[in-house]
Design a protein around this nucleic acid. Sequence first.
DNA 1: AAAAGCCCCTGGATGC
DNA 2: TGCATCCAGGGGCTTT
Length: 271
Amino acid sequence: MPELPEVEVTRLSFADRIAGAKVQSVRLGKPLRWPLGCTPVELVGRTVRAVRRRGKYLLIDLDQGLLLVHLGMSGSLIFSRQLPTPGLHDHFEMLTSQGTLKLNDPRRFGAVVYAASENAPGACKLLGQLGMEPLSDDFDVSLFHAGLRRRKAAIKQVLLAGDVVVGVGNIYASETLFLAGIRPTLSAARLSRPRAVRLHAAIKDVLGRAVAGGGSTLRDFSSATGERGHFQLQAMVYARTGQACRVCGTAIKSMRQGQRSTFFCPKCQKS
DNA sequence: AAAAGCCCCTGGATGC
DNA sequence: TGCATCCAGGGGCTTT
């Protein structure tokens, strides 16, 4: 479910409410992608300082150590003042003095991992290879182009890989390439400077607007406090196989790239 | 070093 | 109605 906008909207929806909260208990459900890395009891008594985001990871800073949270494909965080009744897919539940944070994740590709610090081996392994943040000032267009130039793989897959720029998932990869008029199969190394500039702008534009609008999904999405996104992404190409391109009317095509679906307009994205 | 495949898991949609 | 198949918003790991 979550690409960068949904993760950021989730963060914004509960960061202020949980800041300062003292952990009272932690309950685990079925195993997630990785073990927690400490015992639930060790977290009791710690205080939540802040919630940050790096790529699609949420970083919950504690007065000692931090929790790395990833929503995977099907995860969502819920922060609630009431004592929630544990649901079938609630696999991490943290009671605090200010409410309960739980991760609901049917497919369990998500994770909650404790690390003593951001530089601890466990955290480094997950965060160390991440590329530039597209919504921050360090998303420099020259660095972006330079990053693409050293990758011969298809641009779509380079975007998804997250080591040049983070946060662009399967939907936004297709959408931003459409906006930039670039064929998804084009080798990243072959992007001209003007086209890299256009793609850079498209990524900033779409992700930025999606966050500002409260997130968007093609299915259900709600923030950690249950608010639905009101940025309804008007997908130009994603999941529109065979339908008319909203710009030129040509039938949208789909294909597989690295076991993921890609959508594009053969006319608007000639190369 | 980089690229391509594989795999983790559940559930909803579709087809027979 | 029941059952099989395919597909899904991610990404680490293993193999080429």
